[in-house]
Design a protein around this nucleic acid. Structure first.
Lengths: 215, 215
DNA sequence: CCTGGTTTTTAGTGCATGCTAAATTAGTTT
DNA sequence: AAACTAATTTAGCATGCACTAAAAACCAGG
């Protein structure tokens, strides 16, 4: 009885991401993140609380319980394995894999998950540079600094690009700014910053460089 | 407005399969096939009729319209491509691919569908021997005779094995009775029939041989 | 052609998930 | 501390899709 629905999985995943480094999440935050009305979020949170997947007391915000976090990490693992699989084995363009994974993550069986992981060589990172949780529910969480924090003249390796905007991602991909790429910060400009990458020199708008993190 | 839901897709697929070679399908048939109450089926049929996906007049049964058939074939294509992909590229055991595909078929984008088809070399058959509809919605439908119709002494090629029972399928797979396998009918026995396959001789129970078709 | 049995449909419900509008609580400002 | 504002919750309702029970239509045997 009461299996975790796909919608619930989305809530758990969103809460997981929002609560990182914070001590609680508010109703309006998930509502905004998931694009639903605040009342709908309240409703679902109460349902998740009844299932002991989030700890909640009204008007005070909430966090995942261990059980909730376990499910969230499982879904995130699905998501990131699918992204990587689609990119590597089927050549799906990077800016598309996020939205494909968003739908597939809810129907991936443990069996197929395991086989995909094996086919990929048990990877630890998805194509955006995000860590893939292990099947035991462990994830090392590293937070890389934004590209703009790199001092002029310094070199860095792209560690992460945002998965939120397909258009942005496509532009970054075309410029070669993807996880693993080595670049050198040349300096800040009025509307962004100038970097050198693979011998080419380019200016990244503020919007673009905001979505790149380096190591 | 009114996108075709996953549940609707299941109804369309079921109607497609039931109406093969018949001139109409009854409420109780889909209800049985989908494991829902007759009233639920009536309800959904009326909804599909409003969307012009089935032609329906009450108490008289129904059939798919061209638009409905197009969607049904698209889902069947998804299903069979996924089955084949899982079997060939991820090594998922044959008796499992049907149920995996049953969930994934509803979330496969055209993009990923096309890439899977390419990776598989635009196949025309799934691992059970069922034909895969083309992306333009064409499917050649061949109906093969049951194994038991093979005359004693005659040779045949396994063309199709049923996808309905995982347990049966596992047994067939273990015996090597899979699409493409060449076998020779030795004769009927009281409880099934005896065949020779790859030099080995085996007796297939009636239940088993019922789910095998030959060419 | 009527009557009993089967199939189908209608009516009324329940649950998951969403919404808006109204009520409540929290937090901030004077 | 009172009062205003912003966030949250409650109340009431809609839609998709299932169910059961009752009514209606169809079909077959007499």
């Amino acid at each position: 009885m009461s299996a975790i629905s796909g919608v619930m999985q989305d809530y758990l995943k969103a809460i997981y991401k929002l609560q990182q480094g914070r001590d609680s999440v508010s109703t309006s935050e998930i509502a905004a993140r998931l694009g639903v009305a605040a009342a709908s979020a309240t409703n679902m949170i109460k349902r998740l609380a009844r299932l002991r997947l989030v700890a909640y007391s009204r008007y005070q915000g909430f966090v995942l319980t261990l059980a909730g976090e376990k499910i969230a990490l499982e879904i995130i693992r699905h998501h990131r394995l699918i992204e990587l699989y689609l990119a590597q084995h089927l050549g799906v363009p990077l800016e598309q894999v996020h939205w494909e994974a968003e739908r597939m993550e809810h129907v991936l069986s443990d069996e197929v998950e395991a086989r995909m992981a094996t086919a990929l060589g048990n990877p630890v990172q998805d194509p955006h540079g995000d860590p893939i949780p292990a099947s035991d529910g462990t994830m090392r969480d590293v937070r890389y600094p934004k590209l703009e924090t790199l001092a002029p003249g310094a070199r860095g390796v792209v560690a992460h690009v945002s998965d939120q905007s397909p258009a942005l991602l496509r532009r970054l991909a075309r410029l070669g700014v993807l996880p693993g790429a080595v670049l050198k910060m040349l300096g800040r400009r009025r509307d962004g910053c100038e970097v050198e990458i693979e011998g080419r020199r380019l200016t990244l708008s503020h919007t673009l460089s905001e979505s790149v993190r380096v190591q």
